[in-house]
Design a protein around this nucleic acid. Sequence first.
DNA 1: CTTCGTCAAGAGCAGTGCTCTCGGTTTTGA
DNA 2: TCAAAACCGAGAGCACTGCTCTTGACGAAG
Lengths: 230, 230
Amino acid sequence: MLAPSLRARVRAGMIEEIKAVARRHLATDGANLSLRAVARDMGMVSSAIYRYFPSRDDLLTALILEAYNALGDAVEAADAGVDQADLRGRWHAACRAARTWALAHPAEYALLYGSPVPGYAAPDDTVAPAQRPPETLVGILRDGVAAGRIDPPGEDLPEPLRSDVAELAALLAVDLPPALLARGMAGWTQLFGLISFELFGRINRTLPHRDEYFDHQTGLMADLIGLPAT
Amino acid sequence: MLAPSLRARVRAGMIEEIKAVARRHLATDGANLSLRAVARDMGMVSSAIYRYFPSRDDLLTALILEAYNALGDAVEAADAGVDQADLRGRWHAACRAARTWALAHPAEYALLYGSPVPGYAAPDDTVAPAQRPPETLVGILRDGVAAGRIDPPGEDLPEPLRSDVAELAALLAVDLPPALLARGMAGWTQLFGLISFELFGRINRTLPHRDEYFDHQTGLMADLIGLPAT
DNA sequence: CTTCGTCAAGAGCAGTGCTCTCGGTTTTGA
DNA sequence: TCAAAACCGAGAGCACTGCTCTTGACGAAG
């Protein structure tokens, strides 16, 4: 059975079409995705959807997984598109890519980083794709340290915390001074906060030049981390 | 009519009780608050709730408003509890108060800072209470500049951005160098990101000492802002 | 060619927000 | 004081949701 049967092929096509329609509904109606509405849009009856997704949460999970990977692709591609030695340029590119993707897919971003759906618990399949953006940022730090172009922070972390962050560095398989990794995490936290504030509408009115604001804020974190210009 | 009528008093009591029960449901069931469920809990029929709140969104708005003010109270009280000259102590106290409140009221925090409910638009009554925490943080900067204890950042902001932030400073009625206010906003953004990451469960597993991590991260932002110790 | 697995459809259940009507009570004003 | 007005809770009902189960039809495999 190297060649998938006809039935398997149309089944795969149906799954893709359901996800596409659901993604469209997500973009317009927000997070409250209605299975019945998706079924209506496909000229089907709601119960037919259950042949392809055992529950609404499973459909949501599939969309979440795709969204995580789309965001990860965007961030990694942006990072890879800059000269590897240009640490600061890579940082800005990765941050901008995350923001651009979020602005283009606000509902999916809200699905990933908004308040968790009450009954919903993200399965373990999602944790690896979810870590791709922060891993990209940490990779910039790793390259910078390896090239000797980042001066680690002067003082080390106080002890209960130092072990935690060191363990996290081991878990990420990067050899970074804990104090530096902590600053990188501050940058990642800041990036998430920036995008969320902009997307969830708490900053728009007073700041017309949002691109410049974003770049400046991420630049501040690059300063904090110690990323050298060019 | 100085003394409110009996009817008005029981009405006010009913409104309070409905909000209390709704808050309880919010804490257990998450954001999907069911009017019928709170009505059941009160031994009433669902339509009776509509005598007190014209819609579910209005009930949510009332809860949101109370939550904003509770958070604002907590942050302002923490800030006021520290010697006014101890800028860094005030910063840490305000940040910790926000985190403590959020950890104690996760569902309400999610209501305030999570993904916006699709059909829901926050009325204008909520913007003033929503600004209380960031205003408290900015107040620390204002006091520091007034006392000459904060050195403003060396370089100024590039121009399209400088005007925006200067306008924001005027709107907040604080006389701060734009570059400094921008760093303060970075701190506020970071604070929100920190709390959200911790609350929405993206950081817990790998960092057992969360209090220390939080203090360190907010300390990093205090460094960036230039808050002097003691 | 027949059997088996898969499929869409429909009915139905429990739950939701919300509207409307119907009696009963309280407050108000003449 | 007493009728009119305002208010209140209960109930029925509408349109919607996620989800389950059964039924009948169709295509693929033996």
